Computed example of a mutant assay.
Amino acid sequence: MDPDHQKKSSIFAPYSSRDPSMDVPVTAGQAGSIMSPYLNFDPAFISPGGDSEFIFPEGANRQRGRLELSFSQIGGSVFAGGAVGGLNGLYSGFKETKAAQLTGAVRRTQMLNFIAKQGASSAQTLGVVALMYSIFGVVLSMGRGVEDELNTITAATATGLLYKCSAGWKRCVRGGGIGFGLATAYCLYTSRDRLKDMFSKD
């Protein structure tokens, strides 16, 4: 081999397979995990359970709080409302323009109007509901100093009552009942394991 070529290869690839300092075992250890080629230790000794380990600032929680979750809830509600309203507007626009016997660009314009109006209306409605629910949830969480199912059910019930309070007491009570029912079903679904443990201890 050309001496110049050997010199260039040694400059651009200093850690070749012939370098004795890189002779580190990379085979699997007794626990089945890959040995680190740099520190030569088994990472399974650090976290035996295999869970990810993170460094949290002092006083920080391992889970996101109610205030942090509220932003994603509001944004998701607006997006879901816009999508559902848009699909409903597409169906309504197709039905109305067909009944009016519109064709061509006029029909497309009318359908776009239906989609935009109903999508914006549904997005605004769900966004307002999510905003009220988040405000109630954050206030309850900060006031009680704990985050549990009671906050969720109370916030949902108060949201339903407040949202329908201007439509009369019957609709107000109905809105609170809907919020209570949805929150109760959500808590029963997400916390069923903890509820089972609570009833099994009793």
Score class of each variant (00 low, 15 high):
73 Q>G: 15
42 D>R: 03
149 E>R: 09
183 A>M: 01
156 A>L: 00
135 I>V: 09
68 E>S: 06
37 P>S: 02
109 T>P: 15
52 S>A: 04
89 G>N: 04
83 A>L: 11
178 I>L: 02
54 F>T: 05
58 E>V: 08
45 F>K: 13
147 E>M: 00
202 D>W: 12
94 F>W: 14
47 S>C: 08
24 V>F: 08
198 M>I: 09
37 P>F: 02
120 A>W: 06
152 T>F: 06
192 R>W: 13
41 F>I: 09
190 T>V: 08
45 F>A: 14
102 L>F: 03
18 R>S: 06
178 I>H: 14
8 K>Y: 12
148 D>R: 11
158 A>W: 05
36 S>L: 00
47 S>P: 12
135 I>A: 03
112 L>W: 08
118 Q>T: 04
111 M>H: 04
100 A>P: 13
55 I>L: 08
190 T>I: 03
127 G>K: 05
54 F>S: 07
128 V>L: 07
197 D>Y: 11
32 G>L: 02
158 A>K: 05
50 G>Q: 01
27 T>K: 15
20 P>R: 05
69 L>K: 02
108 R>V: 08
158 A>M: 05
90 L>R: 03
111 M>V: 03
46 I>N: 03
173 V>L: 05
8 K>A: 08
26 V>R: 14
67 L>G: 09
68 E>K: 08
201 K>H: 14
78 V>I: 09
21 S>P: 15
60 A>V: 04
